[in-house]
Structure formats: C-alpha cells, structure tokens
C-alpha cells in the first residue's frame, strides 16, 4: 500500500508539473504582462522597475520555479482585471460549482444505476424498451438546449423553480452552501438536472451493457444453481461486478463536469468557477485562467487516485499487498 501511494504521488506530481508548465506558458504567449499592466505613457524606468519587481528579468527557468513554488502555496497572483487575489476569487466560486456537480452526479447514479439494471434484466418489456429509446434522446440533446427547455417548462410555464442564480446561501467557514436554504435547494434542481441528464443515460447504458455481460458469466449460473434468489443475484452478485467501470466513469465525469459546467453555469447564471472562467477569457485575465487550469488538473489527479483506491475496495484481487 505504501509503495502504491508513493508511486501514485510521484505520478501526480509529474502531471501537476506538466500542467503548471502549460499554464505558465500562457503568460508568455498572450504578450508582455508589463505592457498589459502599465498604461502607454509609462517611462522606460517605470517599465524596468516593474519588470524587476515582478521578477520578469530573471531567466525563464527561475521564473517557472517561482511560479510553481507560489502555486504550490496557493498563490496564483492577482487578477489583471480587478486586482483581487486569484485564489480567493476561485475559492469563493468553487463551492457553487462543486455542489452543483455533486448533486448532478448523485442524481445520475441514483437514477442511472437502477435504470441500467432494469433495462438489462427486463429486456423484453415495454418499459425497458421505452427507457432505452428515451436514453438516446438524452445522449443526443446538447445541454444548453436541455437547460433552456427546463427553464421554459419549470420556471416560465409552471413557475415552480427559479430560472437563474443560486438562491440564498449560508456560510460555513469559507464554504458557502446553498443546500441549507429552501431557495438554495430549489435553485440547484434545474441546473443539476440539466447537467445530469447526459450522465444518467451514460450510467444507464454502461450499467446495462456490463450487467448483460456479467449475467452471462459462470458464477451467476452457479449462484442460481446454489438457489440464490433472482433479486440477490441481480443486485448483490451481478451489480457489484459491474461497478468498476461505473466508478471509473463517474469519477472521470466529475472532473469533466467541474471543468465543463461552463455551459450550464452560463445558461442558469450559476455563480461558479465556470462562469468566472468564461469572464476571465473575455477579458484575457491570464492569472485566473492559469489558476483555473491548475486547479482543474489537480481535481482530475485527486479523482484518479481516489478511483484507484475505490477499485481496491471493490475488488479484492487488486489488494495485492494484503497477502
């Protein structure tokens, strides 16, 4: 287990270094930051003085080293646009995105797994066929269409839920949550649903395919020969053998959802990181873009490690060290 952790950590550090290198390169590609920060009347002395103060006269490798060591301590500099601390801005937006993504993921698992099992074990019935057919629609509709459709039906026509924003939030330490207030909970339903619709169909189709595969295996036949009732066979013996790919996909999708909740956040004006990033892109706010890139990469790396640990929890064959 220790060797495993050391190996994983080395991997993670390598990935993070590569990503921060790319993030760092953004600064150099979008032009001279001194030109961006000073106005056109600045003298050469002022320019040199700023350049020296920002460390931009140092060699490339030293600058990169400074960037990495600052980033590792959570210092991504200040926003070009409103001169605020970048990490603070992201930290302020992160809870909104995170809650949205977690709720969407829970919805997709709670709905997707049973639907996948049902469509696999009740293959010939009309409702399984109907679910299969509907899932094609779910996969093919773009999420902004789904979002707008949900707003139209539930906010405009029925008036059940707010069309945009996050509702009231409660602060717990630095974390602001919308899940503890009624308006916050009502506000998260539509964006989470729109974000999860694609996931539900993905989970459902994955579980269905895996179930059909597993149900053909010998140990299922032997379990039936032992007299295990159908329900236990489906939900205990077969489903657990299907969970590996579901865990992988879900974790990867959480990363993906965090990174690409942009569209949903834009449609619902959800004050999350995605919206912040879109605004940063519009104003060429490089520090925010670089920090966003690094943080999303960090989330992916952490999730990957979590997936490997979960694997070992599900499958005893991967607990090599225990022997």
């Amino acid at each position: 287990m220790l060797a495993f952790l050391i190996k994983r950590s080395a991997n993670a550090i390598f990935v993070m270094l590569s990503v921060s290198f790319i993030a760092f390169m953004i600064f150099r590609f979008v032009g001279d930051p001194v030109e961006l920060m000073l106005n056109e009347q600045a003298t050469q002395e002022q320019r040199d003085e700023l350049r020296n103060r920002l460390g931009l006269d140092e060699p490339f490798i030293v600058q990169f080293g400074t960037f990495v060591s600052n980033a590792a301590q959570g210092d991504f500099g200040i926003s070009f646009r409103n001169q605020q601390d970048v990490l603070g801005m992201i930290a302020e937006r992160f809870p909104a995105t995170f809650e949205l993504v977690i709720v969407a993921t829970l919805i997709s698992l709670v709905a997707g797994i049973p639907m996948g099992v049902i469509t696999a074990i009740r293959r010939q019935t009309w409702y399984a066929e109907a679910m299969q057919f509907t899932s094609i629609i779910g996969v093919s509709l773009p999420s902004f269409v789904v979002g707008i459709g949900l707003i139209l039906i539930f906010s405009v026509w029925l008036g059940w839920m707010p069309a945009f924003g996050r509702g009231e939030t409660v602060d717990i330490g630095w974390w602001s949550t919308g899940l503890l207030t009624h308006s916050g909970r009502m506000s998260i339903i539509l964006p989470a649903l729109s974000l999860s619709l694609f996931q539900i169909t993905l989970v459902m189709r994955l579980v269905r395919a895996e179930m059909l595969e597993v149900l053909r295996s010998d140990f299922i036949k032997f379990a039936r020969a032992r007299g295990i009732p159908a329900r236990a066979i489906h939900f205990r013996h077969a489903l657990r053998n299907c969970l590996m790919p579901v865990v992988t996909m879900t974790a990867m999708q959480i990363g993906g959802l965090i990174a690409f909740a942009l569209v949903t956040e834009t449609v619902f004006q959800w004050p999350g990181m995605g919206l912040l990033f879109i605004q940063a892109v519009t104003f060429v706010d490089v520090p925010i873009m670089a920090a966003y890139l690094c943080i999303v990469a960090l989330i992916f790396v952490l999730l990957n490690t979590l997936v490997d640990i979960t694997y070992a929890m599900i499958d005893p064959r991967l607990r090599g060290a225990e022997k």
Binding site: D218, K221, F222, R224, G227, H237
Partner: peptide, 25 residues
C-alpha cells in the same frame, strides 16, 4: 425452483476458476 436448487439439488460445474464470485470471500 429457487427454493429447490441448492437445498434438494446441488450443482458442480466444469470450471472452478469462474464458478465463484470473485468479489466475495
């Protein structure tokens, strides 16, 4: 049948490598 299988008739299959569920002790 579920109540008869295992109780009144047991089964042994060809491949012991695949007859047991790998995820349960």
């Amino acid at each position: 049948l579920t109540k008869v299988r295992g109780r009144e008739m047991g089964a042994i299959f060809q491949d012991p490598l695949t007859a047991l569920n790998p995820l349960f002790s």
